[in-house]
Structures are given as C-alpha cells and as structure tokens.
Design a protein around this nucleic acid. Structure first.
Lengths: 136, 136
DNA sequence: TAAAATATTAGTAATGATTACTATTACGAG
DNA sequence: CTCGTAATAGTAATCATTACTAATATTTTA
C-alpha cells in the first residue's frame, strides 16, 4: 500500500529510532519535517500502520501507548523507576504458546511479554546512592 | 492492614468473581452493597489494593485497566474478537526471567504475559457461521 | 468516656490520551 | 483538465482516571 507523505514520515521515524515513542513524541519529531501535521493525523496513521502490521503498539501499563517500528519478534523491558521501555535481546519464546494452549479450548495466536525491573542506568544510580549514604 | 467498609467490599467482590472487571464494573457491582459509594473511592481503593499486592492490575492493551483478585501466579488470555479476558491454567514460566536476564545489565524483577487469540466461545460461533455459510 | 487528631469518603471538577467530525486539500483515473 | 476518492489540519468531543474539598467516620489519647 502506498503511504501518504505524513504516514511515510511517521513510519520512517519509527524505523530509525531505537526508543519506543508515544504518539505525542512521534508528533513532536515528525513536526520537524512536516511542521503543520496534526496530532490527529499521527494517531490515525499509527493505528493504520499497526493494523497493517508495519508497526507494533506497546501497552505496558503506562498511561499511554508506545510504538515500535521493529516488527520482528522481540521482547520489551520496562524500568519501574524511570519508566523507560527498552528492547531485550532474547530468543523468541514461541514454545510458550503451546504450553499455554494445552487444555485450552480456544485458539492461541500469539503472546506479548513485558519484563519489568530496574534498568542498567537506574541500577547504577541506586548503587551510587547507597555508597553515598554509607559513606556520608 | 485494616480495610474500610468500602475497600473490604471491593476486595470481596474481586476475590469472589472469576471475571476480570474494569473499575467501572467493580463500581456497578459494589453499588449493590453500598449504593452511594463513589467511583473515585473505587479507583482510590483499587490503586491501594494493587499497591499492597492484594489485587492485580491487568493492562492488556484495552482502553481501560482490569483488576484481578487472584494474586497467585497465573496468566491471562484476551480474545481478540469479544475482548473477554480469562485465566489460563499454566505452570508459571519463572525461568524466562533468567533467559531474559542473560546479558542484560539491569535487574529483572518479573514479567507479565498476555496471550491472545480466539476464545472457545467465539471459536465455536465462528465454526457455526462457516457451516451456515456453506449450507445456506 | 469525650475531645482531638487522623483517615476516608461522596461528589464534583479537572486532566490527559485518544477519537470523532468537518470543511478543505491532495491526488489518481479517465 | 475534471471528477471522485482519500487524506489532511484543526478543533471539538469522549472517556478513563485523577485531583480536590468539605463533610463524615474512625482511631488515639487523655
């Protein structure tokens, strides 16, 4: 399917960043290229791209959704301290669909996994704090 | 911790139902016992119960959160057709924390998994439809 | 016990992400 | 080019959730 200029710019940004921006962050960035694009257009095109499987929607329990231009199977990690969402390099766990499907009357098409904990940066800061508390 | 009458009623309802109600559904049910309870009170107490680990919050990418009074480890399935959320009887997959943690600089505290697909009921209806389409 | 301190509430207003709407603009087929 | 369709910008509306406040309930303390 051919993309409009606006949709193309949104997709390009998502494919080129490793962050997992919210709709608002996408809006702010794409405005640098198309200054008068509207937020509604961003939402509409994000939904369309998700529907076509060209973009992933991440709902990790934050107040707002995030979007990911990398559609190959991978998992996500959310820091419970800074709320940053990052990719996790792990082999896909396709077998868990089978485990879950055993004895289930329905059809399992897939799964999404969100790991949570403290990210490397916050962990470093935490340690730093403890050292500071101990020494001072 | 001692619960107020309102919080007790909310917790009781969540522990006794196998559905995974939204805050609004909790509100509607608890109103049968405490008719003038306010929606804000429901939200405030749900947040408090979640914070204390007495209730789970489910964020499966629906527009609104759902709540679960069963806190022992288990997984959830969301039907992409009727949007119903149900429990899935499966062994906990604790080992995937280790798999994911390999080579990751941060600390992984846990994970949440949502399976999706077609639930038994919708699957039955779908088949029925196809039969009907074929025959008529 | 009663008075004072604290916690919780009902009700309502505010917030913020997302969607709906509408008049206008871009664009491909004939 | 001209018509018809699709997409847009801008704005208003929606809906889940949170914030606020004056009033009520509960606990503490004397």
């Amino acid at each position: 399917m051919k993309h409009s200029r606006q949709r193309e710019a949104i997709l390009e940004y998502l494919q080129q960043t490793t962050s997992h921006p919210t709709a608002d962050m996408v809006y702010l960035h794409v405005r640098k290229v198309i200054p008068n694009i509207s937020l509604g257009t961003v939402y509409r095109n994000l939904n369309q791209l998700v529907g076509q499987g060209e973009v992933l929607r991440l709902s990790c329990g934050d107040d707002c959704d995030r979007f990911d231009g990398t559609v190959s199977p991978h998992y996500h990690f959310r820091c419970t301290q800074c709320h940053e969402v990052s990719d996790l390099v792990t082999d896909p766990l396709e077998h868990i669909n089978l485990i879950a499907g055993a004895g289930f009357g329905g059809r399992i098409d897939g799964h999404s996994v969100y790991f949570y904990g403290i990210c490397p940066d916050c962990l470093a800061n935490e340690k730093e704090c403890k050292i500071r508390l101990t020494n001072g």
